[in-house]
Design a protein around this nucleic acid. Structure first.
Lengths: 173, 173
DNA sequence: AATTGCTCCGAATGACATTCCTTTCTTCAA
DNA sequence: TTGAAGAAAGGAATGTCATTCGGAGCAATT
């Protein structure tokens, strides 16, 4: 009887634990594009049986490789046609907590801290330019926010979640 | 007998056609967070029966409100811990086609054209800083690419797909 | 060489998606 | 105001698929 709390010499995240064989990566690749596939169909594409695929998917979920399964909504079709990236310059380093409160807003999709000539980077999708202005107003209301630069998206040519593939050629150029 | 090709006075995209009632938005909100919910459970949360929810979801898919269902992969856990946003200045306006070819690379997750002091904005996730360098090399190999500015992500605090909610307060500030 | 643990497959079970049909509510026309 | 027609919801039935179980093959360890 295996003990789930047995001593692990490495942590489960990162790329440790199980190195993701070709089957896993194939499965991840398919599910990242369409999570509605049946296990039987997944098995066909990967060369495994349905139960085997099921087992692997369960493991991929348990180990955090798959964070979840979501429906991808269309921004414009759901009433939010305005997309923008906002760079935020803020004073002090511990003030990121203030910005994290913006997670409450469904308009805010991403919050990163970045290296470069700015501190924080937001991805924001909202109903109108008016709403975008309102969001910027909220930003400037924060005492630590010094300046912002907004990049309003005119056209989106590609937008997808993380893909499973890795281009080896990029490593050796 | 309704004719599926009957004359429409408005196009089906945008926010025309059916204005998304409270049920629809509730369903979209739940599915954007977890698409693995059963229709029965979804019905409970929305206050509808399973078949009714099913009917609506089918319509939301058909009208393009729901673009698809995907598994969200964890970047670091799947071997791509490096995330960066790359601003690209390019000469000429018709040259965006060259950049679109980058869609082939699984490392490139987003390609937008933006207003502001730059032309294109890429979101890139790759295995190493070496790979990021390789990707920049490919960018500069394009004749129309004049300059790039990269913002390497140090920490990601929030990252999600488009949400269904709309903050009304943002419109009136 | 034997054993332990892991992962696969085939079959059986159970849950759930999907469809059909009836009912109700709303809307438009007379 | 009434009548008719369209749309949409709920209940029940059916089919598909997810999920589980048991057994077999394989690899690594002792």
């Amino acid at each position: 009887m295996p003990n789930p709390e047995k001593t692990e010499t490495v942590r489960d995240k990162g790329q440790e634990a199980r190195p993701l064989d070709a089957f896993d990566r194939k499965i991840l690749g398919e599910l990242a594009v369409d999570a509605g596939l049946s296990y039987a169909e997944l098995g066909n594409r990967a060369g495994l049986s349905a139960p085997a695929v099921h087992e692997r998917v369960k493991r991929l979920r348990a180990t955090g490789r798959i964070r979840g399964t979501v429906a991808v909504l269309d921004g414009p079709a759901t009433g939010k046609p305005f997309l923008a990236f906002v760079h935020v310059d803020s004073t002090g380093w511990g003030k990121t907590q203030e910005l994290l409160a913006l997670s409450e807003l469904p308009e805010v999709e991403e919050i990163h801290s970045v290296a470069g000539d700015t501190c924080m980077l937001l991805k924001v999708r909202c109903a109108s330019s008016r709403a975008l202005e309102g969001l910027l107003a909220r930003l400037y209301a924060l005492p630590s926010v010094k300046a912002t630069r907004s990049y309003v998206v005119l056209s989106t040519f590609l937008e997808r979640t993380p893909q499973a593939g890795i281009t080896e050629a990029l490593e050796g150029e």
